[in-house]
Design a protein around this nucleic acid. Structure first.
Length: 287
DNA sequence: AGGATACCCTGACCGC
DNA sequence: TGCGGTCAGGGTATCC
């Protein structure tokens, strides 16, 4: 489900409920998600105040007032939903669509003031852990994480440097979180189409001109997706239950057989498999 | 180095 | 209605 724009959308939804609020109780309803919860998980969170809710790559980072960080990854199917205290006074009046899957509600955070934040994850590829903020960058999860694509650092020159003389495909290089962090299968396909670059082209063959176009395409597709509240495939919803709508703006992703949307292009979107994942592109205009 | 594959897990969808 | 196969937004390990 979540690539960078979806995680950022979730962060923006959760921040008003979590920031500055004390955690009254944490209920982890199973011993693990993808990995076991850390030692004394609930006890270490209880009575802590979330000082800020941030994001690094596809990770949510809740900084706590004791110097620890609650690190959360949504995997493929993780989501949060918020229950505000007002909703509780009218039981039955409002049923969040996702509440049907209550069997996959794995963690519940109760906050001072009455708000509840529930983590739901059918496939359990997500995970949560705790790490001291001071050593977060050295944590195995973050040690090799690459640059933020929306930071000021990303431009054509940096792409050329990251890609070097790599013979691996542009698709694989852009999915490599050690180089650029936060892109996933959808937005890589979309950025390559916008930059008119073939996903099969060797990453090390970019000219500075094409690299600049690609950097710009990455930036704009992510910014547009965030502005649209992310993409809703299957069941992605914001923490407040709203749906993202960027999926309507996909130019190639999941559009096999449709005409290429590039003005004047007579090509057809095709699907191939690269490193085990579907790639959608137009061989006519992406070179 | 990097590609292909398997795996973690559940659910949706499709053809029969 | 049921059943089996396939696929899914992520990430890691292992083998060639």
């Amino acid at each position: 489900m979540p690539e960078l724009p979806e995680v950022e959308t979730v962060r923006r939804g959760l921040a008003p409920v979590m920031e500055g609020r004390r955690i009254l109780n944490v209920d982890a309803r199973r011993p693990d998600l993808r990995f076991p919860f850390p030692e004394r998980f609930a006890a270490r969170l209880k009575d802590r105040t979330v000082t800020s809710l941030g994001r690094r790559a596809k990770y949510l980072l809740a900084d706590l007032d004791d110097g620890e960080v609650l690190v959360m990854h949504l995997g493929m199917s993780g989501s949060f939903r918020i229950l505000l205290p007002e909703a509780e006074v009218a039981p039955g009046a409002f049923h969040h669509p996702r509440s049907k899957a209550a069997t996959h509600d794995h963690v519940e955070f109760a906050f001072e003031g009455g708000a509840t934040v529930t983590y739901n994850d059918p496939r359990r590829f997500g995970f949560m852990t705790l790490s001291p903020r001071a050593t977060l960058e050295a944590h195995p999860l973050f040690r090799h994480v690459g640059i933020e694509p929306l930071g000021n650092a990303l431009d054509g020159a940096l792409l050329l440097r990251l890609f070097g003389a790599k013979q691996t495909s542009l698709k694989a290089a852009l999915l490599d979180q050690r180089l650029i962090a936060g892109l996933g299968n959808i937005y890589v396909c979309e950025a390559l189409h916008r930059a008119k670059l073939s996903p099969t082209r060797a990453a090390g063959t970019l000219t500075i001109r094409k690299a600049n176009l690609l950097a710009e395409a990455i930036r704009t597709v992510l910014e547009e997706a965030i502005a649209a509240g992310g993409s809703t495939l299957r069941d992605f919803a914001h923490a407040d239950g709203a749906l993202g709508y960027f999926q309507h703006s996909f130019r190639v992703y999941d559009r096999e057989g449709e005409p290429c949307p590039t003005p004047g292009c007579r090509g057809v979107v095709q699907r191939i498999v690269q490193t085990g994942r579907s790639t959608f592109f137009c061989a006519q205009c992406q070179k």
